[in-house]
Design a protein around this nucleic acid. Structure first.
Length: 203
DNA sequence: TGCCAGGCCCTCTTTAGGGCCTT
């Protein structure tokens, strides 16, 4: 059974192109409907954390100063993910930091990204909104830690992914819900889910 | 101190604009 890596970054801002850096990364490996492994670390990128980010995440300059260097952590994260495809909530954000931080080390970032926010918009258009915190309550998913910390958010995104896999399996009688199915669903037009998934339906 | 983005999606659209989502 294929493994999917669910990733979440905490950062100093929203744009690596403007010098913002990662402060924490967490990765949860999901196999089928089970979490089989976890990776989490603060990292020191040598930049100051704005006060409002500390207020949001609880991650302070002192915490990051005592953490391993960003390069060391990202090498470990890259090794941990390996060839597994990635999933994140609002993946365009985490993908930029994944590519940006690995790029600083001269490391490739070839993994395809699927996005639980885009998938949620497809699957649950009736949800109040598609923020991670809202979807936790909407689906009654367990909270495993403080929001806006990397591991807690990655665990929640992984639980959301499993819930989506279960719903896809039931709604569309899919043989298996792997990363290819998620990408097909993500890229299809709204209201056209069944057609997009037809080649994955059990005979 | 306050600001800095980008991809997706919807609609009073497509020769555009604005909301959502992430930190």
């Amino acid at each position: 059974m294929s493994v999917i890596a669910v990733i979440d970054f905490e950062t100093t801002g929203i744009s690596p192109d403007h010098g913002h850096r990662a402060t924490e990364v967490a990765i949860v490996l999901v196999e089928g409907e089970r979490v089989v492994d976890r990776f989490q670390s603060l990292m020191n990128a040598g930049v100051r954390i704005p006060a409002f980010i500390t207020q949001l995440t609880g991650i302070s300059n002192a915490m990051v100063a005592a953490a391993p260097a960003a390069g060391e952590v990202m090498r470990q994260a890259s090794h941990f993910v390996g060839d597994a495809p990635l999933v994140a909530h609002n993946a365009s954000f985490d993908r930029r930091f994944w590519v940006g931080e690995l790029g600083r080390l001269g490391l490739p970032a070839p993994q395809p990204f699927a996005c639980t926010m885009l998938l949620s918009r497809r699957l649950y258009p009736q949800a109040p909104n598609h923020k991670l915190g809202t979807l936790v309550d909407y689906h009654g998913l367990p909270r495993t830690g403080a929001a806006h910390r990397a591991l807690a958010d990655a665990e929640i995104a992984a639980a959301l992914l499993v819930r989506m896999q279960e719903d896809l399996h039931q709604r569309y009688r899919l043989e298996r819900v792997d990363h290819d199915v998620l990408m097909a669903l993500q890229q299809c037009q709204r209201g056209n889910l069944a057609a997009a998934l037809s080649r994955h339906v059990r005979a």
